[in-house]
Design a protein around this nucleic acid. Structure first.
Lengths: 222, 222
DNA sequence: TTGCAATTCAAACAGTTGTATGAAACTATC
DNA sequence: GATAGTTTCATACAACTGTTTGAATTGCAA
């Protein structure tokens, strides 16, 4: 490969545009204009538009997941195979929140692209996304080890709510700022992380009689 | 005028298709095929595709908000101007959850359409959506009356998290079912509502030291 | 240099999109 | 039953999409 220059220029431009404007209204012509390359270059280097998107997503997906798992593994090792639930949750939502919030110029294009991908669900991405389940299962496993007296159902709901709060806060950050007239400071990322982790922790550790009357205690006595 | 038949057939078909497949890949030709009307009928009756979408969204938006506010108002009147926080939250997330989850055949097309609209953010909708802020402010007001010792910041974060859990659960319901291998039963809508309300309530009523270290624990779950 | 493959480029292609047109088919009023 | 107004229809249109093509250009080895 003589020069990857064109190839990586396309990748960078595409990621930036998709992150900013979404998949819906970014055309190949927008991308090649931003990258200062010829229109045919995309098909020459990637085969098709979908393959370009897929490569972008796979690359970032692997990187993000590795980052999260690194934090998780470190925490579990330090705790002798069992990490505090707060630390697990922090490893789950921290990297994404840090990448997508905070002062404008510090936001990672990569993370913003991943958020787009998790929202818009364009075909080439949807096809790949099922693997993410396996990734989440690892977190579910760590959470189970951390809270052995909790049923699987509670674990999964807690996981779901943690991701919900993180993603929704990112996605609707503008609206929250506007609604609260700036009182909710989304630039203070560590505060946001702490809030999400705190609420998710409460969801997972609150008294068992929180809601399900007599239903849940039967089958799962880990 | 003479016969609204064509007009309402288009509205119904469009809503159904948008709810099922999103705005991205539903064309006017898909809509008119589903509605069994001529292609030109859309432009004749609505002016343009965007105006069709806008009318759909405005209609549903008004209906949903009226439903939520009705529940809220009833609760506040019954409590003499101050409703329990759980009831307020239930009025906020209940209608949407009930419309979008539960047994397949009971799901409201209207609610599913609104979820799509809240996710995909197509131009004609984005333009209208800002009014939703005023609607949410009414809920923030009720929450403030219900929890007078809470700061505005806490109120807004609680509101944000409640919506986050409701919307995310709807949007990722398939994934949660798969991840939990069916253990999380999303057809049991009232259980889902109870879980969301319960966690959001904890977020709003937990020990005031929420902002401090992540170690704050709260056993006062209602 | 010559020769050859890799890369770039302008241009065109085939398909789809939302929209516009003008004639036909209705509907109701007189 | 003729007329005027509304609604439907087949069809065409212009703009845009991703993709392909084949010629020009580049880079590098012999």
């Amino acid at each position: 490969m003589a020069s990857d220059h064109t190839r990586s220029a396309i990748l960078a431009a595409a990621e930036r545009l998709y992150a900013d404007r979404g998949f819906g209204d970014v055309t190949l012509r927008d991308i090649v204009a931003e990258a200062n390359v010829n229109l045919a270059a995309v098909n020459y280097h990637f085969g098709s538009k979908d393959e370009l998107i897929a490569e972008l997503f796979v690359t970032r997906s692997i990187a993000t997941n590795r980052e999260r798992l690194r934090e998780l593994k470190a925490a579990e090792e330090q705790g002798g195979g069992r990490a505090p639930i707060e630390v697990i949750l922090r490893a789950l939502v921290g990297p994404t929140l840090r990448g997508c919030l905070g002062p404008e110029n510090q936001r990672s294009t990569a993370a913003r692209f991943m958020i787009r991908a998790s929202i818009e669900s364009v075909p080439p991405i949807r096809r790949i996304k099922n693997r993410e389940i396996d990734h989440l299962r690892k977190f579910a496993g760590a959470m189970r080890r951390s809270l052995p007296d909790r049923s699987d159902v509670e674990i999964y709901w807690g996981l779901n709510f943690a991701l919900a709060m993180a993603h929704h806060t990112i996605r609707e950050s503008e609206r929250l700022t506007k609604l609260s007239e700036g009182k909710c400071d989304l630039d203070d990322v560590e505060d946001v992380v702490a809030r999400v982790v705190s609420v998710a922790t409460m969801a997972l550790t609150a008294g068992k009689a929180a809601k399900a009357p007599a239903r849940a205690l039967a089958r799962d006595a880990g």
